[in-house]
Design a protein around this nucleic acid. Sequence first.
DNA 1: CCGACTTGCGTACATCGTACCCGAAACCGT
DNA 2: ACGGTTTCGGGTACGATGTACGCAAGTCGG
Lengths: 247, 247
Amino acid sequence: MTADEQITIWMRPERTERTGPGRRPGYSREQITRTAVRIADAEGLEAATMRRIAAELGTGAMSLYRYVPNRDDLIDLMIDAVAAETDLPDRPTGDWRADLSLVAHRVRAAGLAHPWYVALAGRRPTLGPGQLRVQEFALAALDGFGLDIDRITVAAEMLFDYAHSAVHREIGWLDEARRTGRDVSRWMREYVGPYVKQVVESDAYPMFSRTVREARLPHMTPEKRFRYGLDRVLDGIAAGLPARTSR
Amino acid sequence: MTADEQITIWMRPERTERTGPGRRPGYSREQITRTAVRIADAEGLEAATMRRIAAELGTGAMSLYRYVPNRDDLIDLMIDAVAAETDLPDRPTGDWRADLSLVAHRVRAAGLAHPWYVALAGRRPTLGPGQLRVQEFALAALDGFGLDIDRITVAAEMLFDYAHSAVHREIGWLDEARRTGRDVSRWMREYVGPYVKQVVESDAYPMFSRTVREARLPHMTPEKRFRYGLDRVLDGIAAGLPARTSR
DNA sequence: CCGACTTGCGTACATCGTACCCGAAACCGT
DNA sequence: ACGGTTTCGGGTACGATGTACGCAAGTCGG
């Protein structure tokens, strides 16, 4: 009967500050989203169940459905909420390398603060206001250097892809261990370690063996590692620029 | 009591071709994996439940646990099975650009054939034999051009990150629509379309509006789009090489 | 004060992964 | 040939999840 069947969540306005008849809402979409984010930060996304979020708010699970159509949409809201808190200037500076580097580092910061974030951010198309703002900044940073809009889009996608993937890898083991409730160092030492050792000793994958043997972790801190890859991504974008190089 | 508590799945050998006492196994890990992959290809990963896979094999759900510790490990096996069928030469040709390009296109082919694959492939560290082989090829392709092993690793990561992300985006809408059981064109037209239109008309995101208005899809086929981004990634890697450029 | 309408939320259901358990089958030593 | 030992097949059952349904309680306009 109603027309609001399957809208993209961003089109379903919250009926806050209503003036018609009926009981007044006691919660809000934003409050629910914040709570869900807090739980997911502390205990992982899978801990943020409808029941748990509701309990944290002191209500029943079904109450949430007055504010959010379903859990998937709530997760979209969570993603956008994290993106929305990204600290960026109003407009790019004109130095596209610095601008994109800033975006990438902000994404990294968000990913470290919200371990569940990077695993989801790249998934579905980013259409919420928070994500749009970040994306808009990246696109605008690339405008005016001779790239047509298609190339700009591809370049921005590359940047976000890199940031998401790199951070994902950076926190990968940690998050994996937490999800499954294992002690990470113990798990590495007792289970992953022996397996890797076996693979290395089999000599079937010489390059992989070198990777392990020449122990890359001491060489680069996660931060430097991220920056190195980022520079390569930016180099790639620079190579796609038609004439002048920036900076 | 038993010592095989939480090993990385690749260390738990399948007890095929046993010679001791006891009933002989009627199924196999590989058979189960193949069935799971087939279901996931046709109806999505979430359709590949333990019960469903077992039913497809004509047995009960609990039988699968004789061959696979749990569903997460089975998914790891599925990922590796797809990686294992990647068609690659035994060793790189010496032209690193061509070699990496080949890997990227093979990954894309795998992603198109198994829509659930790219969403998972980048997630956990790749340690199965199938993934190791592909990764080994990429690493070896970059050996001998003056990069130390750390840089080589980072470069290879960038390549796989790009391939996974790009293919993920390429099939994103399709898969999303299928997952939720929506007709994709109808959904785009009736729900996403109006929202995008609203965003564009709000003029709050001018670059995004240009992206939409100047309709990128007709310009590039997915294939060309993939290749363009890939070239940028390879350019970035080239920029990280110390002295000589290849090709 | 009285309908009209909204929110809060308890109950209930389908579905999932999987722990537990036991009968059936296949090998061993005798 | 046969009983013991070991492994496989899989039924039943449990706890957890997302969420549909329905109704009581709160809040407005008249």
